[in-house]
Amino acid sequence: MIVFVTGLLALSGALLMLIAAVGLLRMPDFYTRMQAAAKAGTLGILLIVAATGITLGSVSALLHAFLASLFFVLTTPVAAHLLGRAAYLSGVRPWVLQDELAGRYHTQTHELGSGRAPTASLPGIDQAEQASS
């Protein structure tokens, strides 16, 4: 019974990570690729962690598994946020219908306006794009 459960967990986790990799290849732009990798990749690794914890079975292994899954859930979004921000600032254009982030970054300080209380009119990101590409 336990073998069946862990096998199912491990296989579905591995398949999800395979889907993340295929998504990385097939998605049209960087941001959609990141979505595929961040989501499918995280759930995949969580399932594999669970499978390993249950297979090993000891209290210490379950504790390891719990801490590892906490680590993945906390770090993946942080890494995605930092990388997405860096990519946007370095001029990687998103393939999107609408981009409400366009022109909101200050080109020098990288401060980000909210568009609520308008700051002084800032030069858009487009100049940085031309400079870096």
């Binding site: 979505q35 979004p77 946020h81 997405g84 998103p94 982030l101 401060e111 980000l112």
Partner: peptide
Amino acid sequence: ANFLTLTPGTLSLDLSSDKRVLYVH
């Protein structure tokens, strides 16, 4: 922001400097 990144088709990209707006893909 963390939960948004992990769930349905949304990925939080950045927070405005005055912390009033979250930019989400």
